[in-house]
Nucleic acid binder design. Structure first.
Lengths: 332, 332
DNA sequence: CTGAAAGCGCTTACAG
DNA sequence: CTGAAAGCGCTTACAG
């Protein structure tokens, strides 16, 4: 019987149940291997003592922390929110916990967060941002599974689950050309992914499109608030574009607001293309044409990889292409 | 010298530096107590071995995990995003890591997440949602500091940092009355906080306002997507309200979009009041009048409490009122 | 199906 | 300022 206020340990439970602590541990982690009667006594003892296992000790002893690091740039207006929510749900359901890191757009912060993730001995690190050689080196040193999402790098470090941003750019170009647009305006954020989409768009547009696109560069990430300046710049162009391609649905929403506020009809006077299929895309007026990325699918693939890794499978570096889907709505 | 691929331990570093592992540990946690020459040798050894401390072992031995649980309902369009981003930044900077839990609106999930937080031996639990007696009981059992934010409960369990939602509702009523509005329409989400604001609004409106408000109930949380139905319901009212009070800026944004799409001027034909001062509130057209909550301030108060707790101070249950600020912009 | 015991990698009085 | 040693609370071969 414990009589101080220190939280009960496995030994306290074992003593009450009249078994060894090893058996209690087995009951907790692998119930089917312990005898029925024993199980009942242990269950009662756990209940009676109010035992909550110490996951620090468990992780140290078993060399599996059941903790997964999720590293994202921001929370607000993030393209990844849906994917992340799905992932956190799946992880929690499967008995893992999530360590959240906010990287901003700095590689330095990303590196620091990966170091502390490694210090926590997380089983896996899920990363959305770009990585440097130094980061790759750090990751290699640890034994955590490194998972990049929304990305298909040329040389995957661990496993990458994403899609081709260049293809997405291409598809958007083809789609807009097929709708008869001739004067596209590209708003590109400074990150590598947006850059890839831009390249894909320009390549394809050169093949299928009319005039060369005009462009605005904004800081990453593409947000609602960038629309004011971007729209103002667009208006100063010698000829007004007939469609604007945005790096996120939030930015697209902002452009719609700006356009309407300036008395333009969307899509009549200006069409707007979004990206990411955020919740608001389908709810805006007009609804926003966009590119859907299957966050639930990505979350499932991530979970599958983590579980294999936790079960001891060696995971070869590879890319998993989950594709994307262009959704035509009212804004284009 | 280690020759296998197991990550280097404190002993590996100690051996290389020619000191005991205790000294290395001191150097890592309390550099000023070890001699200059020794420090240099240890620094070199850490560098050479690529040592990354095992925080699981450290936490177990020291009984301080330097991990803090943050429990929020959602990621997408969350009122707390700004507060949370500030908090995660402060926590990370001060050497703590964040365990993220997504509670949804279910008390059951909240309880489960609190249990696993306790299992991880987090130093503190930051919670935004409502809590049940069972949760309070669970929390009492652990030694983690329990912090509620955006909330000032009658009987705080640990420390609560927030503001009076009822006062906010009152201030909104007074503000709208002072602007000459006479037919308010309240959109209230089903959560306890929105309910308190509603009560405050109704009380004050009865004193200063004209007609009794009309109302719509929506599910929690208040989101952009709720606007369609809410607006449609409003339109069916015998007399159209002249101002609509929303539980979040996102919902307010949605109402503006709906109103404009129906040919109404905002605020000319319909004024719109938001809540939370999200980034978009100041960027929308028209800009959204709202209630600002100082997320950075809340984050600082939270950090201060956590640091005191980690330093061993006994923290008495109490409420910290950080207040709020009504911001008048174009939409009202 | 169960127990005794070693070990996971740290921290921290205690002694010097 | 530093070291030897106990201990944090688990897990897991190993043996029975």
């Amino acid at each position: 019987m414990k009589d101080d206020d220190r939280p009960p340990t496995l030994d306290d439970v074992a003593e009450r149940a009249g078994v060894s602590s090893a058996t209690v541990s087995r009951f907790l982690n692998n119930p089917q291997v312990v005898a029925k009667g024993t199980s009942d006594r242990i269950r009662e003892a756990v209940e009676f003592t109010g035992y909550i296992p110490n996951a620090l000790a468990g992780g140290l002893a078993s060399n599996r922390s059941r903790m997964v690091a999720v590293l994202i740039p921001h929370l607000e207006q993030s393209l990844f929110n849906d994917t992340i929510e799905n992932m956190v749900d799946e992880l929690t359901t499967s008995g893992n916990n999530v360590m959240l890191g906010l990287t901003g757009t700095s590689l330095g912060r990303t590196k620091d967060l990966i170091r502390t993730s490694l210090a926590r001995r997380v089983d896996a690190i899920i990363c959305t941002g770009p990585v440097s050689d130094e980061i790759v080196e750090t990751v290699r040193r640890g034994k955590a599974l490194f998972i990049q999402i929304w990305e298909l790098p040329e040389h995957p470090v661990g496993i990458a689950i994403g899609f081709s941003h260049q293809d997405a750019g291409r598809d958007i170009a083809r789609f807009l050309a097929s709708r008869g647009y001739t004067r596209p305006h590209l708003i590109t954020a400074e990150g590598p992914r947006a850059h890839l989409r831009r390249v894909g768009f320009l390549q394809e547009w050169e093949a299928v499109g009319a005039e060369a696109p005009t462009e605005t560069l904004i800081e990453v990430p593409s947000r609602f608030g960038h629309a004011r300046r971007a729209f103002a710049e667009m208006r100063r162009l010698p000829r007004m574009p007939d469609v604007v391609i945005c790096g996120s649905d939030h930015l697209a929403q902002g452009m719609i607001v700006e356009a309407q506020s300036a008395g333009l009809k969307v899509p009549g006077n200006l069409a707007v293309m979004g990206f990411g299929n955020s919740a608001i895309a389908g709810e805006m007026r007009p609804t926003i044409s966009t590119v859907d990325v299957d966050g639930a699918r990505i979350a499932r693939e991530v979970m599958a990889a983590i579980i294999r890794h936790q079960d001891g499978d060696e995971i070869q570096p590879c890319n998993v292409d989950v594709g994307f889907r262009l959704i035509a709505r009212e804004s284009v």
